[in-house]
Amino acid sequence: MLIVDNIHAGYGTSEVLQGASLEVQAGKVVALIGANGAGKTTTMRAISGMIKPAQGRVLLNGKPVQGYGAARIAKLGLAHAPEGRKVFGPLSVEDNLLLGAYNHLPMFFGFRSKAAHDLEKVYDIFPRLRDRKQQSAGTLSGGEQQMLAIGRALMANPKVILLDEPSMGLAPVIVQEVFNIIRRLKEAGTTLLLVEQFAKSALEVADYAYVMEHGRIALSGTPAELHKNERMLAAYLG
């Protein structure tokens, strides 16, 4: 579904990614883990078109999309819930969700009724959002904002979802909740690429995982394989 082939990317003079490759198969949850500054978020940004890769290919559903703008890649069926959540603070929760489905809805009128079914589905997953649907998103707590960001990505009915550090800055209880949701998405057959600092939790939900070091993929394997890997154990799982 999503193939990243030897991409190089960075900001200004510093090249953060130095030839990273990975693959996400349809219906699978793939985790990307690694130390801070290893290039996980940069990989996500390069895939979704927020930065242009200097080299390499990104294939979405077999189609090369590297070098496209973020809006164009989103239209092709990739949803990216970015690091730091990035909800539209002044807009209401419901408007945030509607905008998630921007590509599928009519521009002017009747978009609310067309989106009603998907909205209900998202509200069923996140009942807390239903309670607060008229509240402006900026006033939500960190955990609620994270749920909104995931819900907004789901609204696009995407082929692939990129989830960047959904646990960032959240209390442990909320982190648990977020991972439960990821598990539910997995059961529903969602294709997911997950960047996570909590390697252990990430490995619990993932079908397959990549470990990043210094802008390259250092290790990969199923969680079971990685649990056996000496290096992995020493560095990330303690």
Partner: peptide, 25 residues
């Protein structure tokens, strides 16, 4: 009241995030 109008507001709130929704800034 229109989705395009909301997209307009989204771009003013967070340009990058709006791009990720498929809204061309």
């Amino acid at each position: 009241k229109t989705l395009l109008g909301k997209a307009f507001e989204a771009v003013s709130a967070d340009r990058d995030a709006a791009e990720l929704m498929g809204i061309s800034a």
